[in-house]
Design a protein around this nucleic acid. Structure first.
Length: 278
DNA sequence: CGTGCTGTTGCTAG
DNA sequence: ACTAGCAACAGCAC
């Protein structure tokens, strides 16, 4: 499920349900995700502690207690869903976090599910968060970076990779995954195949504006642009973002009716309109 | 049955 | 400094 808008929406939902609640227990069913889960440290850090703040950085959800951070990445197929059950409800449930309200009258169960196991669950001290390997080499948050266009232009001067790969590089800017990379370049009217160093400052300003716009719009739509994004009850969310080009190979461009083109860039499907984008 | 895709990211070799 | 290629995995469309 994960690009930035999906992680942002999920993080807000979890924050609403879990901030101020105490971690009663963290149970792990397997620890061989992309990185091994440090089960003992995680349990030692979190069990019995109150979740003070739940937020997002890049595509990581971060759970903060007074001293520790839990780090969750959903990889390509991960989800963190609330169920009314303390026992696994899905085949690929790898961890269950039982939370308790301050009065100890209610419990909530969050299930970490990830069929492909590209996700991550890790932890570190609050004081070490910024220097953690997951965060040490990240570019700015697009939604918090008002001068993103200037940043992209400056950073791209010696980069020959296709601009689509450039904006997907998390050390350049975080949170632009495969879908929204195609979408923002389509809106900015820039071909994804162009060399990053070939774009002008003006073009990067447009690219930056559209990255921010498309991510904000996807968040507003509830992060439901994905084919298999579902809530715990199986519902899809109330509305779905209308994608301009992603997955629309050979279908008419929504602006000029030209059939949408598809190419592979760095092994990833990439979509564009050969007439609208230059 | 196989084959070739799929939302991520970081390592490797060049 | 920069880049392409690949690896990790399960599920699904064909």
């Amino acid at each position: 499920m994960p690009e930035l808008p999906e992680v942002e929406c999920l993080t807000r939902a979890v924050a609403n349900a879990a901030e101020g609640w105490r971690v009663h227990s963290a149970v792990f069913y397997r620890e061989d995700l992309r990185d091994p889960i440090p089960v003992a440290s995680f349990k030692a850090a979190f069990e019995g502690q109150v979740l003070k703040r739940i937020h997002r950085r890049s595509k990581y959800m971060i759970w903060e207690t007074a001293n520790d951070c839990g780090l969750f990445h959903l990889g390509m197929s991960g989800n963190l869903l609330e169920f009314p059950e303390a026992a696994p409800q899905r085949k690929h449930t790898h961890a269950i976090f039982t939370l308790e309200n301050p009065a100890k009258t209610k419990k909530r169960f969050f299930h970490f599910i990830d069929p492909r196991r590209f996700g991550r669950i890790n932890c570190c001290a609050v004081a070490e968060l910024g220097g953690h390997a997951y965060f040490a080499n990240l570019g700015p948050e697009p939604l918090e970076s008002a001068d993103l266009g200037k940043h992209l232009f400056k950073t791209s001067r010696s980069r020959k990779v296709p601009v689509k790969n450039f904006i997907m590089d998390a050390s350049v800017v975080v949170g632009v995954g495969n879908i929204y990379a195609s979408e923002s370049l389509y809106r900015a009217k820039v071909l994804p195949t162009r060399s990053a160093q070939g774009l002008t400052a003006k073009e990067y300003k447009a690219v930056a504006t559209k990255i921010r716009e498309v991510l904000a719009e996807a968040i507003r739509a509830g992060g439901t642009s994905f084919r298999d994004y579902t809530h715990a009850d199986g519902s899809k969310g109330e509305f779905e973002m209308k994608l301009g080009v992603y997955g629309r190979s050979k279908k008419p461009c929504r602006t000029c009716k030209t059939p949408i083109s598809e190419v592979r860039l760095a092994g990833r499907s990439s979509f564009f309109c050969a007439k609208c984008q230059h």
